[in-house]
Amino acid sequence: MDEKKEFTPSIIYGLCSWCGTGGSETAGAMHLQYADNIRPFRVPCTGAIDPVYILRALIEGADGFAVSGCHPGDCHFDSGNYRARRRIAVLKSLLDTFGLDSERVLLRWVGHGEGKRFADTVNEFNDYIKEMKKNPLAERRDT
């Protein structure tokens, strides 16, 4: 087996309680398979994700961090997803400044009924992170 295949990335998936989680439920109802090394966690809204959560995950061992919530215009709290997009843009800019890979953070809108989009996102991101290999920051003991 080549090295790439052996590497199972650790990926955190922040899902809003409305669309993101809904998407994962739909995927479940549709019996869709997706990579099981993804650890979903639920937040009230993507707008409630402080970039510090993402930074902490990346520093403490995650190889990737995905965020999904309602499509623009569909946010349960009206504008939380637009705010999340700004925060993630800032975070990605910071990651690039500090020589970390901003591609380890993914933002993709997933609607409640989009079970397939959810499963595809997981698998696609998982493959992508496998290609990227381990997050060098996650291996540092001196952060």
Binding site: D50, P51, V52, L55, R56, I59, E60, G61, R87, V90, L91, L94, F98, L137, E139, R140, R141, D142, T143
Partner: peptide, 23 residues
Amino acid sequence: AKGALRFPVDRVLFHLGRLSHMG
């Protein structure tokens, strides 16, 4: 998880996190 832990902890997290708040 990492085989060692350097103290004080969360230094890089503090700086990057602070930047994400007020940068």
